[in-house]
Computed example of a mutant assay.
Amino acid sequence: MCTNYAAARRDYLFRHYGVMPPDDPWRDEIYKDYAAPVIRRTSGGPEPREALLATFGMVPRKHISPGVKVFDTMNARAESIGEKRSFCDAWKKLQLCLIPAEAFFEPNYETGKPVRWRVGLADGAPFAIAGLWREWDEGEEGKAYSFTMLTVNANDHPLMKRFHKPGDEKRSVVIVPASEYENWLESRSMDEARSFLNLYPAERMAAEADPAPPRGTPKPVLNEQ
């Protein structure tokens, strides 16, 4: 699973993904309930897709009912996505999105202790993670959006099996090849969408230790106008 990633920079959204960036800024590293850009298909207008800001986690903390134990929805398992209440409606409606990223972070326990590693593409290029989005009615504040990342089993993946606690199932986010961006967003059925939920080739990925900054270190907003 992935609970922290480096969002693509503002200038990449147009140059690499072909969309205009949202007006509001976002942080360079994204955690639960942080706003970050996602790309979805449009229902009309001059452009086939658009970028908008959404919060990381399908059910934002503020939408968890009082008295209910806080739960995480940053990741959605591909195997059960059509059954889980937090995700099934968006999945059945094919509310698919691309999550622009430069890297994602996973814990490596090979030293006996968790060490944060940075995972990305071998050529250093930005990429897109397969996701789902949903809309929230915030009353007078208008509409808001949230998203989750789709994950698949990675027990046999040469790179991704190196992460997470020993004995735990290994999982990986789904990296959508750049040549398939439009096809993923335009999926016409759940079966077609599921055909994209595959592991990315290990030889085209790279990873290295990248310890997290000490607690309290400011997280600057890098993606401003």
Rank of each mutant, 00 (worst) to 15 (best):
H157M: 09
G120E: 12
E140Y: 10
T148M: 06
F14V: 13
K170R: 12
Q225L: 13
Y34C: 14
A90C: 06
T151A: 07
E102G: 12
F87R: 01
M58R: 02
P100E: 07
R188S: 13
H63W: 13
F147K: 00
T151R: 01
R162M: 09
L94A: 11
R40F: 03
R162T: 05
G18N: 10
A209I: 01
I39A: 06
T73Y: 00
V19I: 10
G167Y: 10
I99L: 12
E180W: 02
W117T: 04
R41I: 06
N4E: 13
R204L: 14
V173K: 00
M1R: 05
R134K: 15
I39M: 05
V19S: 09
E182N: 09
Y17D: 09
G82Q: 07
L52H: 04
D23P: 01
E180R: 06
G57T: 03
Y17H: 13
N75P: 06
G18P: 11
D89A: 14
E29N: 14
P60D: 12
I64A: 05
P37H: 06
G44N: 11
N223S: 15
A8G: 13
R171Q: 12
I81R: 01
L96M: 09
G216E: 06
V70P: 02
A193Y: 00
V173L: 00
T55L: 04
K69C: 09
D210Q: 09
E135P: 06
K62H: 12
P213Q: 04
Y145R: 03
R10H: 08
L98W: 07
M190L: 11
G139R: 01
A8V: 08
V38D: 02
D33Y: 03
A90D: 10
R15W: 01
A154V: 04
G139C: 02
Y31I: 08
E138Y: 08
N183A: 15
E138R: 10
D72Q: 08
A193S: 08
H16C: 14
N75Y: 04
F56Y: 14
N108L: 04
E180V: 03
E192H: 04
A101V: 09
F196L: 04
R85S: 13
F104S: 00
S189A: 06
M58W: 02
S43L: 11
K93M: 12
L53M: 10
A6R: 04
F105R: 00
L94H: 10
I81T: 05
G167P: 09
A202R: 04
P213I: 01
F71C: 08
L53P: 07
G142I: 05
A202T: 10
L185H: 01
A76Q: 01
S187N: 08
N108C: 15
T111I: 06
C88G: 00
D11K: 07
M20K: 15
A128S: 15
Q225N: 14
E203W: 10
V59D: 11
E138N: 13
I175Y: 00
A90M: 08
F147E: 04
C2T: 10
E186V: 01
R40D: 03
F14Y: 07
A125Q: 15
R134N: 14
I39F: 02
E79M: 04
W136Y: 14
R118L: 07
G131Q: 10
E208Y: 11
T148R: 00
E106K: 03
P60T: 11
M58C: 12
M74Y: 04
